[in-house]
Amino acid sequence: MGLRGYLFRRAINTIILILFVIILNFSIFQLLPGTQGVISNLLQNPRITDKSIIGKYQNQFGLCSHFNPATNACTLATPWERFQTYFVNMLTFNFGVSYQSGHPIFQDMIQTGRLYNTLILLGVSTVFSLLIGIFLGVFVASKRGTLFDTGWVTTSLVTYSLPTFWMGLLFILIFAQNLHWFPPGGVIPFTWQTPPPLLVYLAVRAQYLFLPALVLTLYFYGGHLLLTRATMLESLSEDYITTARAKGLSERKVLFKHALKNASLPIVTNAALAFGGLLGGAIITETVFNWDGLGHWIFSAIGYKDFPVMQAMFYIIALCVIAANFVADILLGVLDPRIKYE
């Protein structure tokens, strides 16, 4: 089987995965108790005199197969019918209405700037964690066995295994509360009605971005560093490195042109995977720093029991991870001519 067949297989796999996620997401929320409770609550509430209102709500939350607006008469849909509408909705990104705001979720996601905020935070921390992780990994591998090596390996293991929320709280405690270098949370100051001059704007935004981005960077660089180090060690022991050194090439050229290039394959695929996983990792960091992004939205959805938002966010995060996996597979297939297609 050639490259095309390999990609085809991966694509089929990805589609099956998306189906699985949709089914899982649907069935988890089917487990929710409460419909009967809500109905009896509505019926027993003396303030609600018009009992037919139940039908209206059932229609609003998509539980009806047929609905008569004049009488509020609702014919309940079977789970299978609901799954069909749900399935189409998921594929068309029509996630329904948020309980918190009453707006369509897709609109809430984009127009409130949540998506934008999350992309900024994740973009910055991904770029920095990749750069730091890869460069340090290369240097650490070139100085194998020294104190520099063990020191950085230990440090990255520690930062990798510390809970992010605790790291965030500590940074807020030290840098925001005691030293007042950075704000303790938020995306921009509350006092901003109109944006200030560009330079001030950028400086203040960078100040707000610093701590959450630092936490995410510290959390993610360790993985890149350890992986780069491992693959670099492997490629540094190859014969062509000895040849390159014998040719009299500078150490920098040997490391980056010869060793890193050949070691880059797992690093690239890992970077693609990491980008998919970031969104899940951002939930906690955004919550700690009150960063009004998608992750923080999930947190507030928990508090409000805003199930449509949770459902939509879980779906989107899962989609990101699945897409990242697919991209990583493609990269692996395209970049590595040695790969064996089963």
Partner: peptide
């Protein structure tokens, strides 16, 4: 494999909320 791909923290959150 499918379970491995699905992000665990969001799934944990959803399950803990529902159950």
């Amino acid at each position: 494999d499918m379970m491995l791909v699905i992000p665990s923290l969001p799934l944990l959150i959803v399950l803990a909320t529902v159950l």
